[in-house]
């Protein structure tokens, strides 16, 4: 029997980990911008691109779990605006305490997430279509309700609301390292990554995520609660979007009703760069976080290099294609399917 063991060396083990490609990519991007720009690798530079990566990465990690579970959520981007609008409208326009508004906003997000999941499971339609619907619906609601209530397309004035100081401390304060202020969003990101990574590979629920994405009928046949697992994953992306929406509204104190559009694809791109398969069943939370890191580093690096932002789009496109190709190769090695 021993002749079969030969090939499973360390490299084989490493190469089937979904985040390896993203890690290499992150190192390359980091080294590149460190060399071509002055500020990129300074503490101030790091604080800037980490913050950018964090607000993207918080949702990207949740989206990665959902994608591993075999579904998409196109409403996650506008959801960051919807939740911010709920919080801002309740506290500035109706005079609610910020904490209460934040809690109601979370309930709203959980409700929409559950509705997304329930609709997908109930109709059997691709989640791409169902959440495209909720994406459009939320976008319409964001604008329509904001205009109806405020007469404008933005809500502002958070700073003078009840409970702003405390909530702001939790979601939008800064901490200082080496004389430079870092946004607390970075800590939130770290917490989300740690929780998601642990959930995914160390818990029963994580096992179910891989199973429902890898083969839903097989999972159901051995008693995995398919519907519950998927609905919870949709609620997870909505919650992550709520966290980012809350961070944003408390930091900037103003929210535009048309904010957040386009972010949904950035989340998916970060997850794919991080090794998630579009077909589900394979990927990692840490990979998605690395994907978001590459995103943030490249976006800020291009600013530091004083290049036109058009180059960022080109970079993204190339990155995405490269990632998909690498992932496919890795998956084939991981599977080496024999029929």
């Amino acid at each position: 029997m021993d002749e079969r063991v030969g090939r499973s060396g360390l490299t084989d083990r490493l190469i089937v980990r979904p985040e390896v490609g993203a890690l290499l990519g992150a190192v390359v991007v980091f080294v590149f911008f460190t060399v071509v720009t002055e500020q990129f690798a300074t503490i101030g530079g790091v604080a800037t691109w980490l913050d950018d990566s964090a607000t993207l990465g918080i949702v990207a990690v949740a989206v990665a779990l959902l994608m591993i579970g075999g579904e998409f959520d196109l409403s996650a981007g506008v959801m960051t605006a919807s939740t911010a609008l709920v919080t801002a409208t309740l506290s500035t326009h109706y005079g609610w305490n910020v904490w209460a508004a934040v809690v109601v906003s979370l309930l709203f997000a959980l409700g929409v997430g559950a509705l997304n999941g329930w609709l997908v499971m109930r109709t059997g339609l691709p989640s791409f279509i169902v959440t495209l619907g909720s994406f459009l619906a939320l976008q319409g609601l964001n604008l329509g309700i904001t205009r109806a209530i405020t007469g404008t397309v933005q809500v502002s004035g958070m700073r003078s609301t009840d409970g702003y100081a405390g909530a702001g401390y939790l979601f939008a304060s800064t901490f200082t390292i080496g004389g430079v202020e870092f946004q607390i969003s970075i800590l939130w990101w770290v917490v989300v990554i740690a929780a998601a990574a642990w959930l995914l590979v160390r818990t029963r629920f994580g096992n179910w995520i891989f199973a429902v994405g890898g083969s839903a009928p097989s999972a159901r046949a051995v008693g995995v609660p398919l519907v519950r697992t998927k609905i919870l994953l949709f609620m997870g992306t909505a919650t992550a979007a709520w966290l980012v929406g809350t961070i944003n509204i408390l930091r900037f104190t103003t929210v535009q009703a048309n904010q957040g559009i386009g972010l949904e694809f950035q989340y998916i791109i970060a997850a794919v760069i991080g090794g998630c398969l579009l077909t589900g069943g394979f990927g990692s939370a840490i990979g998605a976080a690395l994907g978001a890191l590459i995103f943030g580093m490249a976006r800020q690096g291009i600013v530091y290099a004083q290049w036109n932002n058009d180059w960022f789009q080109l970079f993204l496109g190339v990155m995405l294609l490269a990632a998909v190709l690498v992932n496919n190769g890795l998956r084939k090695r991981a599977e080496r399917v024999r029929r």
Binding site: N207, G214, V224, F282
Partner: peptide, 15 residues
């Protein structure tokens, strides 16, 4: 079974 999952994770899937 779920092909991309490891043997033991498949073995215990659901339990």
């Amino acid at each position: 079974v779920v092909p991309l999952m490891s043997v033991w994770r498949n073995f215990f899937l659901g339990s």
